[in-house]
């Protein structure tokens, strides 16, 4: 081969520039390297603070419930990103460097999302988060609101599943972890949150927060595409009959059904439980979530032997339970614990 053939356009040597993972990585470099500090500086907190101060307490509470699960969720996915970097470099995949390149971009982006919400919460919404400072100093203890709803349980579960996948997990463990992280947390819980914020913004337009969400949701789109690509690879091997990959689709389905319970509970927690002052509409939110789930599980992954009815039933059960749930009591319990810790830390 003539050396003059290898122009940059024709690709590199050991990196496969035709790979979807490479394209995702490259788009992360082009689009995902926005600077959270600069964004905050450029747009400023003033307008948002003004709007925030004009809100009624129940409206603030609704935002606080949404932002609680976003900051704790971003923190949790950032912490688990290192496990994804490990998992995609195992022999269960083809050991391509492109996946690792993208996973490193994902790790940076999740850290940045955590940074954005941390800045925002601390500078605009802090009156609704009296123990927040303590929580972060303790290394990611969840906010009482997060602990009170399904999202808190879902993030705990995510840590366990990701650890299992990264430390000697087989393809079935990896499928479970990827389903929970990329379909459940990023693909439905977070995107359901964007749906909610769009509605809430109509009544309470928090400009800087919306800009942050626009950048973050753009990054998340790539993370979800990445997760679906990984799952497609595993499913492909299962369909080819490779013994170690048998059970992958079943694991995806089981995990999706488990997660929809946590997600539905969170949806009710941020809407119906507090009278939905900013008009999200719980039923619309559930329908949106179901649509997103259907697109990923049936249209994109086309998994076998999955009954949409089971999925809807799991969501309906969670809805029923959520309506009887006393979240306030749980929040108070955690508030109390945190208050004691805060006093202890102050002494």
């Amino acid at each position: 081969m003539d050396a003059s053939d290898s122009t940059p356009e024709s690709g590199a040597g050991r990196i496969d520039t035709d790979s979807t993972y490479y394209e995702l990585y490259q788009k992360s470099v082009e689009l995902g390297t926005w600077d959270a500090e600069k964004l905050v500086e450029k747009v400023g907190f003033e307008e948002d603070r003004e709007v925030w101060e004009s809100l009624a307490d129940d409206e603030k509470e609704q935002w606080a419930r949404v932002i609680s699960y976003f900051i704790d969720g971003e923190h949790a996915v950032a912490q688990d990103a290192r496990r994804i970097m490990t998992t995609v470099s195992t022999p269960w995949f083809d050991r391509s460097i492109e996946k690792e390149m993208f996973a490193s971009a994902l790790a940076l982006e999740e850290a940045k999302h955590t940074q954005f919400f941390d800045l925002y919460l601390s500078n605009v919404m802090i009156d609704k988060f009296p123990q927040y400072e303590l929580d972060t100093r303790r290394g990611g203890v969840q906010i009482p609101r997060t602990d009170a709803c399904g999202a808190g349980k879902m993030f705990d579960r995510q840590g366990t599943l990701q650890a299992q996948a990264a430390h000697g997990g087989d393809p079935v463990d990896i499928a479970r972890a990827a389903t929970n992280y990329h379909i459940g947390v990023e693909g439905i819980l977070a995107r359901g949150g964007y749906f909610a914020k769009n509605r809430m913004m109509q009544e309470a337009p928090l400009t800087l927060l919306n800009k942050g969400f626009q950048f973050i949701s753009t990054d998340e789109g790539r993370h979800i595409t990445f997760g679906l690509e990984l799952l497609e690879e595993l499913i492909e091997k299962e369909r080819q009959g490779v013994p170690e990959y048998q059970g992958v689709q079943n694991a995806i389905w089981e995990q999706a059904v488990e997660d929809i319970g946590y997600i539905t509970d969170t949806g009710y927690f941020i809407t119906g439980d507090i009278g939905d002052p900013l008009g999200v509409d719980f039923d619309d939110l559930v329908n949106r979530g179901a649509r997103l789930a259907g697109d990923m599980l049936f249209d994109t992954l086309d998994i076998d032997n999955a009954q949409p009815r089971d999925y809807m039933q799991a969501a309906a059960d969670a809805m029923e339970e959520a309506r009887d749930n006393d979240y306030g009591e749980v929040i108070e319990k955690y508030d109390h614990i945190y208050e004691q810790k805060k006093q202890a830390a102050g002494d």
Binding site: N198, T207, I216
Partner: peptide, 26 residues
């Protein structure tokens, strides 16, 4: 291309409601 990618993350259809539905009215 870049703006299309913001909306579709390579999928060919809009799936970024964080941007797409941001009808803030402002």
């Amino acid at each position: 291309e870049e703006v299309a990618y913001i909306l579709d993350s390579g999928s060919g259809r809009v799936n970024n409601e964080g941007v797409a539905g941001a009808a803030v009215g402002s």
